[in-house]
Simulated assay, not measured.
Amino acid sequence: MSIALGCDHGGYGLKLEVIKYLEAQGIAYKDFGSNSLDSCDYPEYGRAAAEAVASGECETGIVICTTGIGISITANKVKGIRCALCSDTVSARLTKEHNDANMLALGAGIVGTNLALGIVDTFLHTEFSGEEKHCRRITKIAAIEDELLN
């Protein structure tokens, strides 16, 4: 498994904690920045991580900003991305089981480190259910994307 990481200055500290977690688990990652606490714009880092997932360069992605909102909106502009902003482990589990989300967004100013790492762990270790109703819904999402994002 390879994880695309992206954050802005507001998510930088939490990204470092996620990196420690990934390294301890032996999970490969590619860091698309930001690499400091200097003020920057989340769209460039969210886009880079999302494009890596959409292209298949990375299997999944984790993006982080202060609330997780802006960077998740950005990631979801990339065709093929289903990025879910999660603030609890139940949402992280269900978005994988039901939506086959391929990216996770976190709000560093919303969730603490321990909860965030629990969310990451849940997201990375939950599989898509493959249930017909969920497949049908994901197919409908992809059809909307094909129609509107071309």
Rank of each mutant, 00 (worst) to 15 (best):
Y42T: 00
Y42I: 01
Y42W: 09
P43A: 03
P43E: 01
E44P: 05
Y45I: 02
G46Q: 02
E51A: 09
V53Q: 02
A54G: 08
A54F: 09
S55C: 04
G56V: 08
G56H: 04
E57H: 11
E59P: 14
G61F: 00
I64F: 04
I64T: 03
T66F: 13
T66E: 06
T66V: 11
T67E: 10
T67R: 05
G68S: 04
G70M: 07
I71C: 09
N76L: 07
N76E: 05
K77Q: 11
K77P: 05
V78M: 07
G80C: 12
R82L: 09
C83R: 08
L85I: 05
C86D: 08
C86M: 12
D88G: 03
L94T: 07
K96R: 15
H98G: 06
N99M: 00
A101Q: 11
A101M: 10
A101R: 07
N102Y: 09
N102F: 04
N102S: 05
M103A: 00
L104V: 01
A105S: 14
A105F: 00
L106N: 01
G107Q: 00
A108K: 02
G109K: 01
I110E: 06
I110R: 11
I110G: 03
N114W: 11
D121I: 08
F123H: 04
L124T: 02
T126C: 08
T126L: 06
E127S: 13
F128Y: 03
F128V: 01
G130C: 12
E131S: 08
K133P: 11
K133L: 15
C135M: 12
C135I: 14
R136S: 15
R137Q: 14
K140L: 14
A142K: 15
A142F: 14
A142G: 12
A142P: 12
E147S: 12
